[in-house]
């Protein structure tokens, strides 16, 4: 029963993944006083790109073509490790958070290699930025995991899998005198913006190659491969939304928790849209400081859980 329910949620997540991108665009358009493009525009874009031909640079090799596929596949695989709609993943095992983090890392690695494969100075620049920000974001993500694991073990639960940690457990822990976990919401929020290249870290709508991080790496991709990239990044946003929701939604009975997590994903998309509408981008060399702040907050939570 659980397996069938999980598969249903998994398919639902895969189908709905591009929707938050549409919500973000809609919120931004409302702030700017425009009607904006349709809510389903990301779907239209993906369908359009899938039907298009592709231009492949002469200097590129198979690495360039493999990048988008690996990035998308690793994002989908990482999603399969998460608890969805209150149902634990059938693939869950002790320590699967490490696999999840490095599946995302593998996707990033493939994208960076594909960018370097083009030999364009722009893409090299973007690859260097992506690698740097990825490297500083990774320890922060692990600090979040460690803080949750520390809390779980001190509360007498030997939870070491994402399904146990992000399935209503954090809210239960707050209720049992672990309020410091609330701070992790901020940390996950920063990670969500960073990993998904949103303002204030990156500006996904800019046309200025010199300021881009993620977008500049995919400048040479087109057609179906571009669709894979778009879809892969949509799934990645869904993954981080799910992790963030896992920190705020308490364990609820079956349909309620599924509905709550969907509503939560939509809320997060709205919030991202609001942040992008009211904030300017940070200067690029300030971004590590923002991640450092998130990291030190996470470390603080970890210390608090350990000294109890």
């Amino acid at each position: 029963m659980d397996l069938r329910l999980y598969l249903a949620h998994f398919v639902l997540a895969l189908v709905l993944a591009p929707l938050p991108l549409g919500i973000i665009a809609k919120v931004k358009a409302l702030f700017a006083g425009r009607h904006g493009k349709p809510l389903l525009q990301p779907y239209y874009d993906i369908i359009k790109l899938l039907r298009k031909g592709e231009v492949i640079g002469e200097g590129t090799t198979w690495v360039f073509l493999a990048g988008p596929v690996i990035a998308m596949a690793s994002a989908v695989a990482a999603l399969a490790l998460l608890p969805l709609g209150g149902v634990s993943s059938p693939f869950a095992f002790q320590g699967d958070f490490i696999l999840c983090a490095y599946l995302l890392g593998m996707g990033r690695f493939a994208t960076v290699l594909a960018a370097l494969d083009t030999g364009s100075p722009f893409e090299g620049m973007g690859a260097s930025r992506e690698a740097l920000f990825g490297a500083i974001a990774e320890p922060v993500l692990f600090l979040v995991f460690l803080a949750l694991i520390g809390t779980a073990s001190s509360l007498g639960e030997g939870a070491l899998s994402l399904s146990a940690l992000f399935n209503g457990f954090p809210v239960t822990a707050w209720m049992h005198g672990r309020p410091e976990l609330v701070l992790l919401i901020f940390v996950m929020g920063v990670l969500l913006l960073l990993e998904n290249c949103r303002i204030p870290v990156d500006d996904p709508t800019t046309h200025l190659e010199l300021t881009m991080i993620h977008e500049v790496m995919v400048l040479d991709h087109s057609g179906p491969n571009m669709a894979f990239i778009l879809y892969g990044s949509a799934v990645k946003l869904w993954i981080f939304s799910t992790l963030l929701i896992g920190l705020v939604i308490p364990p609820l009975p079956f349909p309620a928790q599924a509905a709550a997590s969907l509503a939560g994903t939509a809320c997060i998309a709205c919030l991202v849209g609001v942040v992008e509408s009211v904030m300017a981008r940070l200067r690029m060399h300030v971004v590590p400081a923002l991640v450092g702040l998130a990291g030190s907050v996470a470390a603080f939570v970890l210390i608090l859980t350990l000294v109890r």
């Binding site: 931004k28 700017a32 009211v278 904030m279 300017a280």
Partner: peptide, 11 residues
């Protein structure tokens, strides 16, 4: 617009 500040850029 170049700082990514949407409202003023649009208005």
């Amino acid at each position: 617009g170049d700082t990514g500040f949407l409202p003023t850029s649009a208005w």
